[in-house]
């Protein structure tokens, strides 16, 4: 197992090195996201300020703010955007250079993304995790990180990482079919934003919308790890959700491989 994974770490190392060399890109991307989170927090303050009750769907204002910060941290821990890779490789025919290597393309792209993901983890996720941990210890926000929830969170994040990558990979393969990158990116972003719970907690959704959200894999990427860390699941809910995550991860890995094996036989390689 270790021997077969070894060549792929080289891709992760390479994209980590490149990503770190361009860390200003990531810094600006972090800043723009932080502005968005800031706006969301202000909106929640306004909503709670105008409400007669102090909790909504079981969240106090402090918990809601924690929710937003934690789901933001979860999003950057699970940040995988193979669509950029596939669009780039497809349009100038770079995919040819990947296909002459003794490695599988899907896993090459996975490890390339993992390298970038590590850059993001070092710059955003880990510092944010430390800040949030200190917050929960020093101030009463109605959220307590325990060792147990933290370990489960890490485990859940690992599954979420796989789901995030392979679901986005399947989405991204459509670039090879439709040639429409920008539209696909926008659609992907919009769907993820709404159905992952990163805009508002899914418990705020009406029943039918909630059903759609739980049919799609994105809740497993964002909402499940977040709620695990916030300790909002009962024991049985916890294991069911981890089970669903595991099922998604396995199903999507198989699905992505199947779809890719069909696309690769029909592929056109652009240029010379």
């Amino acid at each position: 197992m270790f021997q077969t994974i070894k060549p792929y770490w080289a891709y992760a190392k390479a994209s980590f090195t490149v990503g770190f060399a361009y860390r200003l890109h990531i810094l600006f991307w972090v800043l723009s996201d932080l502005v968005q989170v800031g706006v969301l927090l202000l909106i929640w303050i306004a909503i709670y300020g105008n409400s007669s009750s102090t909790t909504m769907q079981g969240y106090t204002l402090a918990q809601m703010m924690m929710y937003n910060l934690i789901i933001y941290m979860t999003a950057s821990f699970t940040y995988m955007k193979p669509l950029f890779d596939l669009a780039d490789d497809h349009f100038d025919g770079k995919v040819a250079m990947s296909l002459i290597k003794p490695t599988k393309y899907i896993y090459e792209v996975f490890f390339r993304n993992l390298g970038n993901n590590f850059v993001g983890n070092i710059i955003i996720s880990l510092p944010l995790m430390i800040v949030l941990s200190t917050l929960t210890v020093t101030a009463n926000h109605g959220v307590n990180f325990t060792l147990g929830t933290t370990i489960l969170y890490v485990f859940s994040i690992l599954l979420a990482l796989l789901i995030s990558f392979f679901s986005n990979f399947i989405f991204a393969t459509m670039v090879f079919v439709t040639d429409a990158t920008f539209g696909m990116m926008q659609l992907n972003e919009a769907v993820v934003r709404i159905f992952s719970g990163s805009l508002i907690p899914l418990s705020f959704f009406p029943g039918w919308l909630k059903t759609i959200a739980y049919i799609l894999p994105y809740a497993s990427v964002y909402t499940v790890p977040t709620l695990i860390l916030m300790n909002r699941y009962t024991n049985s809910e916890l294991w069911i959700n981890l089970g669903i995550q595991l099922a998604w991860a396995i199903g999507l890995i198989i699905g992505a491989n199947l779809i890719w094996s069909v696309i690769i036989t029909k592929m056109k390689v652009h240029g010379g």
Binding site: A10, A14, T17, A21, M97, P102
Partner: peptide
Amino acid sequence: GVVFGQRTQLWWDLPLVESFSILKEIYQ
């Protein structure tokens, strides 16, 4: 081994020697 004259298999943003050490690992 393949060379496409119009493309490169090297990592554009990295020093050349890094590309070689990455390829060394990929091909074991």
